[in-house]
């Protein structure tokens, strides 16, 4: 068991304390201060209770047959005292907790806004220029506000290093904010149970050094120009909603799988046979209701005007790369 305890100490993240992970946001220190304030009060009372209990057990342990020497069974002063002292302490704790919460709750006016979508089982972060990424990149020392919504069930965005957590609820928007204080990669969890891959609904916050964030965003936003088309297509597949209905592992979802579909001849609703080539794929993206594969509902929305030609090309290249 001492081996385990030793490993535990070694496993702690760098910079954290025994109880808390490292403090990487402006709010973290305040939260931790309250945590430790309560901790020391609790430890005091715990030691008092267990100490008295142990002392009484040792001091007053008697063999069977010996009766108690007797002491009063009621003392108003004492009882009121131990009602009032905890009362005062919890009022103090309540006040500190509430004040700290208002700091976490109220985001500054000038915060940089990122739109967050939770869905089974990944996070999507959309930046003001429309670019969508699977990880959250933020500039250091700048307040960032997250405006969050869910596509399906309730999720909860949790960044332990920032002491930030907020439920992400379908049909409404919730907000969270933070200001990172130190560059580096930090873990994002989903904290509200959301099904099979709940524990894999992870992402990273990448806190960029001053100036690096803008460079990253520009480069990332231009991924169509800098990446091979198939790779760019893979990214679009994940971030533009294709993945919700079209699998890439051969299983059929709400729409047919992308795996190995290119070059095949497929039967349409109505019986016509169509060879899946670039032009058919392009048509299916722009006018999905025209020719629907047999066995599927015509439920796909059009992406005409929502995907640029270059993006459509990249997606087609990606589908071509998914061999059987």
């Amino acid at each position: 068991m001492s081996f385990e305890l030793g490993m535990m100490a070694a496993a702690g993240e760098t910079g954290g304390s025994f109880w808390m992970p490292p403090e990487i946001s402006t709010s973290a220190a305040g939260v931790d201060w309250i945590f430790y304030f309560i901790f020391w009060i609790s430890l005091f009372f715990f030691l008092l209770i267990v100490g008295l209990m142990t002392y009484f057990v040792v001091r007053y342990r008697r063999p069977k047959g010996v009766e108690a020497e007797g002491a009063p069974s009621h003392n108003m002063v004492l009882e009121v005292t131990w009602s009032v002292i905890p009362l005062i302490l919890v009022i103090v704790i309540f006040y500190l907790g509430f004040k700290g919460f208002m700091d976490l709750f109220t985001s500054p006016q000038n915060a940089y806004e990122v739109l967050v979508t939770g869905q089974k089982w990944k996070w999507l972060f959309q930046y003001p220029n429309g670019y969508v990424d699977e990880n959250l990149h933020v500039p250091v020392d700048v307040p960032v506000r997250l405006v969050m919504s869910s596509e399906d069930v309730i999720h909860s965005l949790y960044i332990p290093a920032f002491r930030v957590k907020r439920d992400v609820v379908p049909g409404r928007y919730t907000k969270a904010w933070f200001q990172a204080t130190q560059a580096g990669d930090y873990q994002i969890f989903c904290a509200e149970y959301c099904g099979k891959s709940h524990s894999d609904m992870l992402a990273k916050v990448v806190v960029e050094k001053p100036g690096d964030f803008e460079k990253w965003l520009e480069k990332a936003s231009n991924f169509l120009d800098t990446m091979p088309p198939a790779e760019a297509g893979a990214r679009l597949y994940k971030t533009r909603g294709c993945a919700q209905c079209h699998s890439i592992d051969g299983t059929s979802g709400i729409g047919p799988t992308f795996k190995g579909v290119f070059g095949e001849t497929v039967v349409m609703v109505g019986g016509a046979k169509v060879a899946v080539d670039e032009n058919y794929l392009r048509e299916s993206i722009n006018e999905p209701q025209v020719r629907v594969v047999a066995g599927y509902q015509p439920v796909m929305p059009t992406f005409k005007g929502r995907l640029k030609d270059k993006e459509i090309t990249a997606i087609i290249e990606y589908i071509k790369s998914l061999e059987r």
Partner: peptide
């Protein structure tokens, strides 16, 4: 006696969770 010991810890850790700012961090962990 076990009860007093264990419930003592259970009750006192409730203070952390009642405090709003700390609960945000500890909730659902």
């Amino acid at each position: 006696l076990s009860f007093i010991f264990l419930f003592g810890i259970g009750g006192l850790t409730g203070l952390f969770l009642g405090a709003l700012a700390v609960d945000v961090h500890l909730h659902d962990t």
